[in-house]
Design a protein around this nucleic acid. Sequence first.
DNA 1: ATACATACC
DNA 2: AACTGGTATGTAT
Length: 427
Amino acid sequence: SYGSVFTHAKAGMENVDRERVARVVYDATVGTPHHENETRKERATSKRIAAMKAKGQGMTKTEWETFGRRADERARAMERTRSGARKWLVVDMDGFYAACEELYDPALKSVPVGVAAGPSSVLTTANYVARKYGVRAAMPGFIAKKLCPDLVFVKPDFKKYVKASNESRGVFAQYNPDYIAGSLDEAYIEVTEYCEKHDTTMEAIAEEIRSKVKEATGGLTCSVGGGCSRRLAKVCSDFNKPNGQYILGTTRDDILKFLRDLPVRKMYGIGKTLERILNEFDIKTCGDLLAKRATMLALFTPKAFDFLLGIALGIGTECHPRETPEGSGGRKGVSKSETFKATADKAYLDAKMTELATEVALECQRLNLKGRMVAVKLKRSTFDVIQRQTTLAGPTNDVKTIVNSALRLMRNENSIGANMTLRLVGA
DNA sequence: ATACATACC
DNA sequence: AACTGGTATGTAT
């Protein structure tokens, strides 16, 4: 499991000794509750795969032919929506948090750095020196330390990141004030109009943005991808990372050529589990995905099929999310959760839940939002997650209502298993 | 509507 | 010994 999470290609990790990383990670974790839980989840995925395979094997030749025809029809229908008229850029800062820290302490540039709240919590970023050892974001600190004993831990300091983020956003706004901020270190910018107006190209703008961002932030580098949809621009932003750019042509031919040998895992939305499932059906690249469209139609849900076919053809929403009904809405949820030393102490858990649910209510009030549903998340010492939710009479952001609902949901579970030991609660 | 899994940064 | 936190969305019932 860890193998596929921690060793799959990430910028700066091309020459990593994957075997060593897999071994170190395994040795450090085998037998732990977390590892047991991962194994349990893997077995669930295996079951899912087995069911899909059985379904496929149970189908007659005629049924397969029908799926083949219908998959072709769907592909033709999707082709009719291909336009290629828009120009999207995605800007992604390189090793953002770590790079920000290096800005304030240049000595960090030459040593392996991991940004994490503490030496045993999870890394938010690793600098490129650390990545050579296989250390990367999302890796627990104690494993990172095993891979790279000289790793220097730096605590995250969001003030630095917000400042740099705002500086970079000042640059994006010059090209389109309606850019979409993904996170602090990522943005989607539509430059169709800008290219028209200034008679320029995505390539030229990408160069400009990279140099202006470096200037505005006092030295941070970023990578830029370009294409006719957000999805394609996004993959391209990773193609020449760090401090690089890649602009994909906008014709069908350019796109299919690019996708043919591109591993499916590179695409936004395909993670470790879906990659594993697809691999089981001999689908490794986006080209394979297109070739096996009949299999996908037969075995995946309609939504999943549309998603995968869109990836295979390189067709995705080219418009701004505000132009679609779904994208026009604002925020959909507010939550707070906290991990602590596993305990069954009801008084402690009650107090924690009260504290977190209160914060959620106050955050809703601050944002002027009301919710219709309260959900709690409990994580047992065994790492399995329990989620319970309740629908309220009407939208609210009242502290008492939210706290009481959350407590009731948690107590319901607690009364079932008297020995429930939790390591996280959230609302 | 509810429970839970997956994915992203 | 030790594996986050926040948000969104998909799947299954």
